[in-house]
Design a protein around this nucleic acid. Structure first.
Lengths: 174, 174
DNA sequence: CAGAGTTACGCCCAACGTAATTATA
DNA sequence: TATAATTACGTTGGGCGTAACTCTG
């Protein structure tokens, strides 16, 4: 059993729908469906009753849900506290973006970034392209996702840029 | 942060030695060393002080250790209880083996098997090859790892056999 | 036939192991 | 020189996404 499976279970339990939970978690429906299956297999217990393509919590699922939430909460708390007590000073990454790119580009990049650079914080600013450029030049943003017509910044590019150092700027040409 | 990293951290913290912990966990020293590093990176905190090739718990490590143990314990308890309360009747897998094969063959196979078939239990019997065959025929064992001279049963074969169904027997020819 | 869940299949990265490197007693 | 930790590097299995399938309203 791994934490991501617990998170997946809680999301599906809350939405009572694999599709909606998948959307919320930014994964595809089949991936989510399979992980739920793997978890149930590992527990040897059905957490949901599937009746006519709908999901309902089973008795076991209802019993497990609060424990699952508790585990996630405890883990998160422990991590937060060890950071606050013993971690280095927090850096803040100020990132401008256009709403269009939020789901496909910004969200995954930010998630990856926060995983890799735990000591940092990310602030997001929804701004039109021109404003982003202005603020980049004025050093009020550390990075920007703009790209007017064809999408020019690949996820991997962004991620590797973010990865290197808070304070990087994406070249203006793109 | 994932559960296996927490387990790794606790093991190293208890042994105060990556080598010994690696042996205990049946992984190699570098693998363990790196995962500890990954965890520290994710927390943004050094859990150990490395002085002159020796490991000592840092202040952060001492603070984190009891939380880590608690997380593992809570997770294990939740899993156990959901199995006991809602799981199907437990099957027992009776597996004969020769000591030679314990580390390389039996241990990983059993671990994988228990992960995949959570509702089952595995009982191990150290027996000489002849006795294993006798008991297989008498249905007192469900599977056996024998192979006198050249090792004849590959790990993957065993795992896939175990995987299919408790109650399988490994063909006698092997 | 539109929508929801599962199964099939191929890809890719994260974790692994082997080998080389560094440092200590 | 033996031992213990880390770094380098190639390999692989688990998780993901796309596509195909099944079932329901």
């Amino acid at each position: 059993m791994e934490f991501h499976q617990i998170r997946y279970f809680v999301a599906v339990a809350e939405e009572l729908s694999v599709s909606r939970a998948a959307e919320r978690l930014h994964v595809t429906q089949p991936a989510l469906s399979r992980q739920i299956g793997v978890l149930e297999g590992e527990l040897g217990v059905e957490l949901f009753e599937r009746i006519r393509k709908r999901m309902y919590l089973s008795e076991a699922g209802r019993w497990f849900l609060p424990r699952a939430r508790q585990l996630l909460c405890d883990a998160e708390t422990a991590v937060q506290q060890v950071r606050e007590r013993f971690g280095a000073a927090r850096l803040t990454m100020r990132l401008g973006f256009l709403p269009v790119f939020l789901d496909d580009l910004v969200a995954p990049a930010v998630r990856e970034f926060r995983q890799r650079h735990a000591g940092t914080q990310v602030s997001l600013f929804e701004l039109p392209p021109r404003a982003q450029l202005d603020r980049l030049r004025a050093r009020k943003l550390d990075a920007a996702v703009l790209g007017e017509e064809p999408v020019t910044v690949e996820v991997e590019t962004l991620v590797s840029l973010l990865r290197d150092q808070a304070g990087l700027q994406i070249p203006e040409g793109r």
